Amino acid sequence: MRLTRYLSLYLVKLALTATFILAFIAEILDLVDNAGDIVDRGEGVLGILRYVALRFPTLLNHALPLGTLVGALLTLLLLARNSEIIAMRASGRGAWALFFAMAPGALALVLIHSTLIDVVTPRTESALAIWLTRQIEADGEKADDAKPTWIRVGDSVVSFDRVKRKGRALKAVRIYERDANKIVTARITAAEADYEDGRWILKGAERVSWQRDTLNEKRSADGVWDTTLVPDDVLSALTPESRVSLTAARAVLSGRQTPNAPLPFYETLVERVYSAPLGAIVMVLLAMPASLVNWRDARTGRHGLLALGAGLCFLLSDGMLSTLAMTGVIGPVVGAWSSLLAFAAFGAFRLYRMDGGWPERASAPAARSRLAEAAR
């Protein structure tokens, strides 16, 4: 129990330290691009601090897998440096025992990653999107200069330039009505849309028909807008797609919320909420060969390099397959789980060989024969 607590705390401490350092470096690079715009809007230092607070959880979420790999490698290398692994092996503990002693720390990192993915990051990114939109309003920029946000509502396609009152007011709204064949039949432009008493009210609206028998016929469209769009859908449209919460994704798949992306994106997201945090356990598993590093023998450094390379390959393949699944090229389950399971099997096989002994090189028996003959 003491050994498990010691190794798990060691792992969590080093992994979180590495994660914060990586996220801090990414935050500095991000501020290089965005700090000037925040200062120009008159926010000053407080605006920069608010931006950092809302942006930092996203960067932590991106950095945690790599931070876990670095933390696990540092844990094993420091244990090897202090000859603690030798003491563990001398007491009869093998590689699997070492891994299971670090497993509670890996599970703690899984819980932290799950919280970031499904609870913290969706809220902070939504708050950041709303704050940036409010800053555009405060600048008094023209609607033509604002970047429009697009969203699909049923068969219609909607765009708006600005958002106010937490998604309950839209500015410069354009609604493109489409028929069953996805052909645009009319366009509605409105200066403003307000959400009141559970329905949208268009103001300063005009409808232009693009059907053959009523081509370019114009009429006023002020009044109630018959749509399933709700303010939460507006906020989701402002939030980067990669951080939609599990609840929101399930609401889209069940038809209770308007999708802002193809359905495979949300199907993959549901799988990723469960599979992505488990990557922490795989990272620890892939890092285990680093326990074979001997600081007195430079040749054993290849074990540490192999562990680092395997972790980076896992990150690359996991991200690539997830992207393919979100775009519908492969199935959501395949994209979210295949890389995780494949590298977990590879890590378990390496750990098995570590406990079972590495195979001797083909030249080793011949070398021993020559030494025995020389001794005679």
Rank of each mutant, 00 (worst) to 15 (best):
G167S: 05
A80P: 00
R2Q: 04
S159N: 01
D318A: 10
Y10S: 01
S91Y: 04
R376V: 12
L31R: 01
G328A: 00
L229K: 09
D318G: 11
L74K: 02
E360G: 12
T247S: 15
C313I: 14
G319R: 02
L22I: 07
I183S: 15
V252G: 07
V45D: 11
E177G: 09
P365A: 11
G94V: 13
S114W: 13
P289H: 08
A364E: 02
S363L: 12
A106E: 09
V119T: 10
A169Y: 10
A90G: 03
V252W: 04
L316D: 10
D33G: 13
L79I: 10
L306G: 14
E27F: 00
R5E: 05
L285W: 01
R256A: 04
S254E: 09
S338P: 12
S291D: 08
L74Q: 04
L324Q: 12
A191P: 05
H113S: 10
A251W: 00
S338N: 09
V273D: 02
I330R: 11
T133D: 15
G331W: 09
L351M: 15
V244G: 00
L341M: 10
A248H: 01
F56T: 03
R41K: 14
L11K: 12
G140T: 13
A290T: 11
G311E: 05
G309T: 12
D139N: 13
D40E: 15
F349H: 05
N61V: 00
P65R: 15
T227Q: 05
H113Y: 07
S242T: 06
D213W: 03
L60A: 13
R299V: 14
W150C: 14
I281E: 02
R243D: 15
A374S: 10
G223V: 12
L308Y: 06
I38Q: 06
L49D: 09
A127I: 02
T268W: 10
R50Y: 12
D179W: 04
R250P: 03
V234A: 00
V32A: 12
V12E: 15
D213M: 13
L73Y: 08
L229V: 00
L170Y: 01
E373Q: 12
S275Q: 01
V157S: 14
M88P: 00
V329F: 04
A103N: 00
L238E: 08
L109F: 00
T58W: 07
L49F: 15
A97Y: 02
L74T: 10
L315W: 13
N216S: 08
